[in-house]
Structure formats: C-alpha cells, structure tokens
Simulated assay, not measured.
Amino acid sequence: MTDYDVIIVGAGIAGASVASEISEDCSVLILEAEYQPGYHSTGRSAAFWTESYGGPLVQPLTTASCAFLKNPPAGISEKSLLLQRGAINIGRTEEAHLADQLLSAFSGSGVAMDRWSREEIQTRVPLLKTGWDHAIFEPDCCDIDVAGLHTGYLANARRNGTVIQCNARVTNISRTNDIWRVKAGDKSYSAPVLVNAAGAWADTIANFAGAAPIGIQPMLRTMVQLRTDPPSHPDVPLVVALDGSFYFKPEASGSYWLSPHDETAVLPGDVAPEEMDVAVAIDRFLSVLDVNVQSVTRKWAGLRSFAPDRLPVYGFDPEIPGFFWFAGQGGFGIQTAPAAAKLAHALLLGNPKGDDLNSINPDRYDPARFR
C-alpha cells in the first residue's frame, strides 16, 4: 500500500491540469488506464479556443483561461500556447435569427463579436458558395497547442513530485477510516482524497467508489482531414455553422480539418469514425466552399463526455466524503483547463478563489445540483 494525499484517476487534460495545480501543496498520484496519457479525448482534439464554444455558462471558464494560455508559467511552457486565428459563425440566407440568438446569448459578457455581411465574410473566405449570407465574427478565437499544454501540465506535476502510473486501470475502490484504497493492476494505493477525472469513465469510477452516477454520457465526435484543390489558405478562420452542423479550419499544410459536429452516444471505450459520418462531414463542408476534394488524408474520432445539463462537474460529492468530481467537460475541457484547474485547487484545499476567477460561480458546476 502506497500512501498519497490525493489520488487522481485519469491523466488526460483534466487529471494533468489538476495535478499540476495542487502538486506543490500535496503528494499526488495519477492512475491512467491507457499506455499513454490523453489517449481518448485530449489527444484527438480539434485544438481551438473560442469563447462562445460551450455556451454562455461555460464562457467564464474559457475567458478566465486566456491569460494563462497566452503567457503560460515557465514551468508549463516557454512560449504562448495560443495562435491567433479568428472564427466565423456562419449561417444561410434564412438563418438571420441564429445570428441574432448568438449575439443575444453573449450580450454583456465582454466576448468580442461582430456581425458580418456576405461581403465581409468573403474577404476571409474567398471560395464561399452562394447562400451563406450571415455571420458573427469572433476575432479573439485562437488555435491551442494542445500537446504543449498537456505535456506541460504533466511535466510540471512530475517536477513537483507527482507519480504518474500508466497501464493502471482501476479495478476496485473502497473507503475505510476516511481513507480511500484504490486497486489498479496488481498494486494498491491510498489517500484521503480521490479525484474523479476519468472522462468517459467518470460514472464507472463513481460506481466503484459508491457514489451515485451523475449520468455523464460519452459522445463520439468525428474529425476528417482533407486535401483539396485549391488547397486551403492559412488565413481562413475557423468556420462554424450557426446551426451547429459543422466546423472546419485550414492547416498550414494546405489541408482542412473538419467535423460534422456529431454527438453519437456510445459506451466508454476506444472509438473509430463511421464512414457515413465522414461522408456527412465532407458533404457539409462542400456546401460551404467551392473546392474539389482530392483525398481524405486522415480520419479519426474522439470522445466528448457531457453531464445531463451539458455543464462541467467540479466539486466534492455531497454524499461521499473525500470524492471529488472533475468531469463532464464536453468538448471544451482543453480551452477551459487553466481556470478549471485553479478552481479545483481552491475547492480541494478549501482556499478562496484567486482574483482571476472572480467571474466564475463554482456553485454552477457543483455536483450537488444533481442530487
């Protein structure tokens, strides 16, 4: 039996960020079921930061993460983890009401948004087909160096003494005398606090620990990389459908990344793209741009796990002492990671929030809302 202050289940962006934040104050163990951290979700991200993604109740976490991502601490990265891109939320001729709704949803939030005409859209998307006449432009949207952020968090946690065990799938959890005992592989570990950062497996870990499941549902998300004629231009922004049916962005290689923004409920596990979803993604992409598809150079799928209200779940379980939820981060777990991890630090150690989290109401994400 090896003793720690905190055991974290999951080494994706959730577990890595929390470990990095608390490791100066606690002895920490991360248990990761896979052979490498971030295998199912973090490593398959579309890699963008945009304040409207996830909706107005997620936006405060995204906004509060910006300063950290732009100027990360030296222990995380020596360079900025954001690269300016911009995003166009685009709608068809008959979808002016969707543009109105987006502006209204973020009114007063401080998120920079500009309404664009078709002529303005074409200045950034010159191969635009007819029928796309409405857009909301978000100038602050950026690409995220996801690998840099994730590895930076893991490296910082290790420097502070965190132990990371891969190929360590949890098979049993019990609690005696206020101490959690966790079995993973042929080893057992103990700690007074257990952090559930298991992503798609969050409810499974809750069951092991005797906590009531929240109903966190893994959703399959398809991504496709295309080579086109003409090739992509790097100055084209992220393009997102106002009706939520697709997004795409160019890559420096001349190809495009695109997704049909699908959310197919699946069981926790490894996932692969369905050919029909790939075809749907390409069809929606070609409805926007006047290009020819030369080849599909890559296709993959990842998991996005949502709580029933589609908000993240951060905090101690109200019924199971010492069991801390850090899950349900949907597709926005990377862009909100810095603020979410700082919030978890405050909640785990009973400290006040820092001034950079003043806009965040932790009660909004408390697991008690489901009890």
Rank of each mutant, 00 (worst) to 15 (best):
residue 55 G to S: 09
residue 284 R to G: 06
residue 269 G to N: 05
residue 168 A to V: 03
residue 296 V to A: 02
residue 336 T to Q: 11
residue 99 A to T: 09
residue 265 A to T: 06
residue 26 C to M: 14
residue 321 P to D: 12
residue 314 Y to N: 14
residue 198 A to M: 11
residue 30 I to A: 06
residue 257 W to G: 11
residue 251 E to K: 14
residue 338 P to S: 11
residue 10 G to N: 07
residue 148 G to C: 04
residue 78 E to I: 11
residue 153 Y to S: 06
residue 333 G to F: 00
residue 232 S to H: 05
residue 291 V to T: 09
residue 122 Q to D: 13
residue 83 L to M: 15
residue 236 V to R: 00
residue 162 T to S: 04
residue 120 E to I: 07
residue 253 S to W: 13
residue 371 R to W: 08
residue 73 P to N: 12
residue 220 L to K: 10
residue 105 A to R: 06
residue 193 V to G: 04
residue 219 M to L: 15
residue 77 S to N: 07
residue 349 L to P: 02
residue 44 R to T: 02
residue 336 T to A: 14
residue 33 A to F: 10
residue 96 A to Q: 13
residue 171 T to R: 14
residue 301 A to I: 00
residue 335 Q to D: 07
residue 263 E to H: 03
residue 314 Y to S: 12
residue 93 T to E: 11
residue 149 L to M: 13
residue 124 R to M: 10
residue 181 R to Q: 12
residue 266 V to A: 03
residue 55 G to V: 01
residue 162 T to N: 02
residue 60 P to G: 02
residue 241 A to F: 08
residue 178 D to I: 09
residue 171 T to F: 11
residue 135 A to P: 08
residue 236 V to N: 07
residue 53 Y to H: 13
residue 157 A to E: 09
residue 61 L to I: 05
residue 163 V to G: 03
residue 166 C to W: 03
residue 369 R to H: 10
residue 356 D to P: 06
residue 116 W to F: 13
residue 16 A to Q: 03
residue 219 M to I: 08
residue 312 P to V: 05
residue 266 V to T: 11
residue 189 Y to H: 08
residue 87 A to T: 04
